[in-house]
Write a protein that binds this DNA or RNA. Structure first.
Length: 497
RNA sequence: GCGGCCGUAGUCUAGCCUGGUAGGAUGGCGGCCUCCCAAGCCGCAGAACCCGGGUUCAAAUCCCGGCGGCCGCACCA
């Protein structure tokens, strides 16, 4: 493979992020804290551009989606109702002779023992009473110990209440369902969107931004009358879209390559169970494509039965092909049925239904859930280009951390003064920076490396005719533009490229 | 979480085996030069060698523990 087209490795990407102020390992001066990262001055711009673009696409330009921003520390009952207390707290046992570790519920399940209640005492007595031994060596098992994937904390001065840092943002949408319906007069079908942090105490965080203990979710819970799951007015916008698709049935037959099909076909043949679910798959892909991610590196993979979450009827992951990790989930689109609203209704005693066509219904939920850091990682990976003498990020100008950089060709003859003047005008309209250090080539190279799409250079001719050059990152070509037209020209370029 | 390998300025790296208070490159800052793609020159600053403990007259160098990274396994509703 030619050097020019070699894909970036995760090591190189990590190095680039640290060297150029995109992302830093958190708590670095103290040796680092696994699973936590901080955005630097360049990364924060990219992060915000992506999440603002998402919000604009899925909330601002639609009439059927409301936004919220929920609390991170959540009422503990939320997680009892949602099923997370049951499914996120594992009981671990260790073999006292060979040292192997197992999930106690898995071992009990294997010997056909039902677990009536998830508590340390119950699990302990079940293991003992059924004489469960190590499946590897037959050795005696230790007492179970609790491992909670949810971070907990104490609320109040007397620390009497244990609360959890939300392990997913979705529940805040469900617990606010009634608030949104009543304050906004929402009628079916409609969605509630949220961007926010979620926390999971992962056993071993890995792969840089891919598996984190603190991460950002961008989610929509879209509510539909369960009798109208195929009545999606937007379906025609996506039914002709061709997507790389891998169904659960195919995977069970041993197929591992996705094939290209139209979303319309997938619904017709019943592979995707309803039109609304298909619509959200298509609409998600359209946004991911708009970020510049290569379509051939995106596919839709259905969850096989064993990987379905406790709340899900059917789930499709949007996976991106990371050259250094293979196909990995960057978004999950789940059909959560009426599971969550029903459970919250049951646990809270509050009615969580809505009136549709004169009848009360508990809506079904289709949930597109995007991992911001994973998408950022995919965008960086996908946009990285290495040429013989430089590397650059071919980011869409819309999401690039800096839209332009302003350079005097040399630092004399008043070029620097003129350049600053132009910069001071431009910075009112675009995120940009000024640089006069070192040779012009060096400044171009440094701008390319962080994906600045346009470099504005002030040269001798500028002083004579008030024109500057605009250099394009990907081609290194330059055009001349009058200073008075610069703002309009850049706006146009950012919007269209 | 388990096992293997690893941890020296912002980054890469020499030194570690054969203990005697760290050298280079690049980057950073200031200046000179430079009219187009990481050129050159001068000057300055920057690590007590991941953290803690031990052995020793003496430790970046040897030993132990912790933290962090990479790889494999497990985990990832």
């Amino acid at each position: 493979m030619e050097e020019k087209y070699r894909d970036i490795t995760l090591d190189e990407l990590t190095d680039l992020c640290i060297r150029r102020g995109i992302v830093f390992p958190s708590g670095r001066i103290y040796g680092g804290l696994a699973g936590f990262y901080d955005y630097g001055p360049v990364g924060v711009e990219l992060e915000r551009n992506i999440l603002n673009d998402w919000w604009k696409w899925f909330v601002e330009t639609r009439d059927d989606i409301y936004g919220i921003d929920g609390a991170i520390i959540t009422h503990p009952r939320t997680w009892e109702a949602s099923g997370h207390v049951e499914s996120f707290i594992d009981y671990i046992v260790t073999c006292t002779s060979c040292g192997a570790e197992y999930r106690a519920d898995h071992l009990l399940e294997e010997v056909g023992v039902k677990i009536p209640e998830y508590s340390l005492e119950t699990i302990k007595s079940l293991i003992e009473n059924n004489n469960v031994r190590c499946p590897a060596c037959g050795g005696k098992l230790s007492e179970p110990r609790k491992f909670n994937l949810m971070f907990d904390t104490q609320v109040g001065p007397r620390k009497s209440m244990t609360a959890y840092l939300r392990p997913e943002t979705a529940q805040l949408i469900f617990t606010n369902f009634k608030n949104v319906v009543f304050t906004m007069g929402a009628t079916l079908p409609f969605g509630i969107a949220q961007i926010g942090k979620a926390f999971r105490n992962e056993i071993s965080p890995r792969n840089f931004l891919f598996r984190l203990r603190e991460f950002t979710q961008m989610e929509i819970e879209y509510f539909v009358n369960p009798e109208k799951l195929n009545e999606c007015p937007y379906f025609k916008e996506v039914e002709e879209l061709r997507v790389n698709f891998l169904s659960a049935e195919e995977q069970e037959r041993g197929v591992s390559e996705a094939k290209s099909i139209k979303l319309g076909e997938a619904v017709e043949t019943g592979v995707i169970k309803n039109a609304w679910h298909a619509y959200w798959i298509g609409e998600s892909l359209r946004w991911l494509w708009s970020l510049g991610l290569r379509p051939e590196r995106l596919r839709v993979r259905e969850h096989v039965k064993t990987e379905l979450a406790h709340y899900a009827v059917q789930t499709f992951d949007i996976e991106y092909f990371f050259p250094y990790m293979g196909w990995k989930e960057i978004e999950g689109i789940a059909n959560r049925s009426d599971y969550d609203l029903k459970r919250h209704q049951e646990y809270s005693g509050e009615a969580l239904h809505i009136v549709d066509n004169g009848k009360t219904v508990i809506p079904y939920v289709i949930e597109p859930s995007f991992g911001l850091e994973r998408i950022l990682l995919a965008v960086l990976t996908d946009s990285y280009v290495r040429e013989e003498r430089r590397t650059y990020l071919r980011l869409k100008p819309r999401i690039a951390p800096f839209k332009c950089a302003v350079f005097p060709l040399v630092k004399r003859d008043g070029l620097d003064v003129k350049a600053r003047e132009i910069y001071n005008q431009l910075k009112k309209h675009f995120r940009c920076y000024y640089d006069e250090d070192g040779s012009i080539g060096r400044r171009y190279a440094k701008a390319d490396e962080i994906g600045v799409p346009f470099s504005i250079t002030i040269d001798g001719q500028t002083l004579r005719d008030d024109t500057v050059t605009i250099r394009f990152r990907d081609t290194k070509e330059q055009i001349r533009e009058r200073v008075e037209n610069l703002k309009a020209r850049l706006s146009e370029l950012i919007a269209t490229l």
